[in-house]
Design a protein around this nucleic acid. Structure first.
Length: 109
RNA sequence: CGAGUCGGCCGGGUAAUCGCGGCAGGUCAAACUGUCGAGGAAAGUCCGGACUCCAUAGGGCAAGAGUGGUGGAUAACAUCCACCUGGGGUGACCCACGGGAAAGUGCAACAGAAAGUAAACCGCCGAGCAAUCGGUAAGGGUGAAACGGUGAGGUAAGAGCUCACCAGCGCAUGUGGUGACACAAGCGGCUAGGUAAACCCCACUCGGAGCAAGACCAAGAGUGACCUUCGGGUCCAGUGCAGGUGACGGCCCGUCAUAUACCUGCGGGUAGGUUGCAAGAGGUCGUUGGUAACAGCGAUCGCAGAUGGAUGAUUACCGUUAGUUUCGGCUAACACAGAAUCCGGCUUAUAGGCCGGCUCGCCAC
RNA sequence: GGUCGAUUGGCGCAGUUGGUUAGCGCGCUUCCUUGACAUGGAAGAGGUCACAGGUUCGAGUCCUGUAUCGACCA
């Protein structure tokens, strides 16, 4: 779990981000990004049932969270970001995930 | 030593760095410190309970659902233990939704003469010139299933028609057992088929809904407000309007109500907080009773509580397995699976490993 | 988290006290009709009744478990 300030929790904000946000794709996940005037960047994770069973989905969200935590300096302030995992993420290692995230977040800027 | 059978347990470990959630301390608030943080199935939601609301879940009838050998355990159960009966195995042991088919109804396709109280297709025997008629359930054939088996007597041929033994059925008796039941000897008539996970009968049990139950707090009121690219969107949760009526899920009693209730229709509309919510039929050890399930007593332990949802990430070393090897190593993989109110079970998934009881076979002393 | 429902040819559906060979419509294939097509006509293929076990002589149907899909809750 991220610190509370970095979490997107309201359903309305998440659905708004998913619908209206710009999309940036990588082989393993899709970023939905909306820029706001908030002082923090905020994140939410969407891992579909097609990705795997409960154990697999939890491990993926934990790894993605860790990736976000390590690359927080690359993220523009005030962005609302929903990270939607794709089924191919099952084959990705932690290092591959970190590289994919830093590349994709570079496209946002 | 080999083969088998039953039961129990574990199901990666250690360290470092960086993180997350709860609780306690600390602080105005933070920072910070300490401590705890997934499973044997947390799963499926198939049973049973606790708890909450409906009246305290009330009394009776009807309907419906469930269970189904006996005795016990338990808060309760479809669970567990012991035993009985039937079946399998040399044996340890295993398997069984295991009441009633002489209370009644139904069903049995095709084949077959006939599918349940009757029946003669072939065959056999007798009568007759023959057609055919009569006797016959021993033999053939059909079928999942065809009205006891063996032997002797008997007969025109046969047949429980008669007899002996065996199997099976019914009745009452005795002995043992709490009981299911077992054993013994006796009498009876010689035959009663299958299906109840078909209806049904018998005995016993069951009110309904479920923690999104329920309680409290704040906010909110409508021919509403705001934004708009004119398509629509956003906000306020548990609401507004109209009509009807007593409600308690079928009926009677009974209880509570007379509109802040209930029902129907149309429209609007969204996922605030706190609590319920972590000491419980609790775990471990010892001891007593009991064949056992389990129960009593004593000591001791403090053991998850999230809400877009914590319990992790990375690295190093070790362990296990597989491949490879120049025997130093190297490479790859590490089961099933993630709490959501809580307990007792059942069922299903599960790489690999450990321990113990018992049985059979072989060898040695 | 809880409460329910469904699964039958490619698609949509029937299939009731369990019984001979599981049907219907659309679609598909071949042939006929036409100069050619549509329509029409004739013939045909296509099913492990989601999967596994049980009851029964016999299961799409009855019982139990598993899988997948879907709906509802304030």
């Amino acid at each position: 779990m991220l610190p509370a300030a970095l979490r997107l929790s309201a359903t309305t904000q998440i659905t708004a981000t998913l619908r209206a946000g710009r999309r940036h794709a990588s082989p393993y996940f899709v970023l939905h990004v909306v820029k706001t005037n908030d002082s923090n960047a905020k994140f939410a994770f969407a891992v579909n049932k097609k990705v795997g069973n409960s154990v697999v989905r939890h491990r993926i969200t934990r790894q993605l969270r860790e990736v976000v935590q390590h690359n927080l300096s690359l993220v523009p302030v005030g962005s609302h970001i929903v990270i939607r995992a794709l089924p191919s993420i099952r084959q990705a290692s932690f290092a591959q995930l970190g590289q994919a995230f830093s590349e994709t977040i570079g496209k946002v800027n």
